[in-house]
Design a protein around this nucleic acid. Structure first.
Lengths: 318, 318
DNA sequence: GCGACTTGTGCTCTAAGTGAGTATATGTAA
DNA sequence: TTACATATACTCACTTAGAGCACAAGTCGC
């Protein structure tokens, strides 16, 4: 038996286990959250590769090195997301008798980083998950396609119990029937769409596939990542890893909005951010095209010392 | 080459990769948070085992099945925690040319579940992490051993920058110098203790080893788990997975306190929990030994529909 | 039966935080 | 100079959180 690449896993009658790393690398530019993707066959996918135990002392380190080698990017914030190991997540590998277990990572790079080489490119995260962008209000595809599909899925229940369960899930994750839309529940929403066959990955040949279909379960991984980012924003000052060292408050707000997918109240956002001690003004002003020029701010590291969970406890919408 | 057990990983000049699962199984009884441990040599460790790709379709499922086979327990809430893969986390395996990657899970079982068979036993989580229990105020070992050790570690810095960095880390994670103690930062605290050699796992032969030493990095895993539990409590109604179907508000409060490691304000706790619609009274009262008998409450499932993040947004201490 | 004690439960008061605006400042472009 | 656009200050009503008082309803010892 000869190892091809790094064959990890060998098991009597059964399948091999291969451990790989996947990365959701995020950058924001012009109010658009981008994810680094590579072309994988005819579909986009996340950069991923087999973990080499000889090269790295830790998974985090493996992540950084490998991302750098592969794309030339210098990662800022890096955090492990989740380990995906469902049977069937990689049918191709399965056919070759492999079980691919993927440790997914979330990473940020600042706008302005050199463009990645190779076949990698930046893809608008909302091309992949269009229903998550509500900055201009609820997108049409929610009311026109998703809501009706959810309704008929609920109706197709076999009994009362199942019906209640389905209705609850649908309402909760999509903020229907009086429930509040929770920006964080990205994964729940994706999984529901998967279940009712509205995304290409589900294998349904229906015409109504929402968003750009990605390889394997990479959109699911992206959904986890987006949910994590949205949650993290509120209790850790991670946005600043996406911004240049100085920025205007509106810039900051736009980046947050692009990630959260909802518009924020400008004055209150400013109050939270300034009052919360997250930023401090430099005396400089930004050069501007129209309107009153804004002051440039910088992140205040000291805030970490003062407050237990210094995030942008998001102000209400609008 | 013959597989012994499940050899996962085979690689030219290098080490094999073995994927395993570890479980932090939590139950609360008599105001004590217990963790299921197995004896591993002379030290306690978390139950863990190699992942068998042939047996299970998903890691979660593998977790449940395997925990049930191994301990006879029926798990309630189950959640993936983190994947640990640092070089050196399992020196024994390393000597045999293996790299053991462990996917750690957090799980709850209700008090009253049959005691596990085999060599498994319930261990007080605060025997392993004694500095995390502040229900009776800050434990002595913090002021007597940890704080001084941290201080001299800070003093031993090479330059100003390092000193500032160390001081910040110490203050933040331990709530010193005006910072607030954050119950969630369990992992940060453990890692700091590890770094300054106050825990047995660090290999230091010093007399001042705090808490019961566990095998490998299992205490680190436990620390992640405890941090996760504490965080989760505030925004998801997970405590109820640890309680019987009906309970008094004080019982509920005690369970929360035991996990959070801090005393809570009784009246405000009640207000939060009742006012937040998390529970509803049954008309029954609990049989009591002394004092006015309390009403029995049950968890209100409907709260999920009403509020976006129904946790016990902990009331202030005391 | 009565008071001491224990636990449960209702309510108040204050400070701080949030949502939603109005008003004013300070720039650019026609 | 006016129209416009953005930045920034400030207000006000309302909700939530921290802290504590007061009273209710049991048990226990005498």
């Amino acid at each position: 038996m000869i190892a091809v690449g790094v064959v990890i896993g060998w098991h009597d009658g059964g399948v091999d286990v291969v451990l790989e790393l996947s990365a959701v690398i995020v950058a924001v530019r012009n109010d658009v959250p981008y994810v680094l993707t590579v072309q994988s066959g005819d579909k986009p996918g996340l950069p991923s590769g087999v973990f080499d135990p000889d090269a790295d002392r830790s998974l985090d380190q493996a992540m950084r090195r490998w991302a750098n080698e592969r794309t030339g990017l210098q990662l800022g914030f890096v955090e492990q997301l989740y380990t995906f190991g469902d049977f069937g997540r990689d049918p191709l590998a399965a056919r070759q008798g492999e079980r691919r277990i993927s440790v997914a990572y979330l990473a940020f790079v600042r706008d302005g980083e050199p463009l990645p080489e190779l076949d990698a490119m930046w893809t608008n995260a909302y091309d992949l998950l269009p229903w998550e962008d509500r900055r201009l209000g609820e997108p049409e595809l929610v009311s026109q396609q998703i809501a009706p599909a959810l309704a008929s899925w609920v109706d197709a229940s076999l009994d009362r119990d199942q019906r209640d369960g389905r209705a609850l899930r649908a309402d909760l994750s999509w903020g229907l029937a009086g429930a509040t839309w929770d920006p964080v529940r990205v994964l729940e929403r994706y999984e529901l769409l998967f279940e009712i066959g509205l995304v290409g990955e589900a294998g349904t040949s229906a015409a109504a596939k929402l968003g750009t279909t990605a390889t394997l379960d990479h959109r699911r991984i992206l959904a986890s990542a987006l949910g994590r980012v949205r949650g993290k924003l509120t209790y850790r000052p991670v946005v600043f890893e996406l911004l240049p060292s100085t920025f205007t408050l509106l810039q900051l707000q736009r980046v947050v909005e692009s990630l959260v997918g909802e518009p924020l109240h400008k004055q209150n956002f400013r109050r939270l951010v300034e009052g919360g001690g997250l930023v401090e003004g430099t005396a400089q002003r930004a050069e501007t095209s129209s309107g009153r020029p804004a002051e440039l701010f910088r992140f205040r590291r000291e805030v970490l010392r003062e407050r237990p969970a210094p995030g942008l406890g998001l102000p209400g919408r609008r």
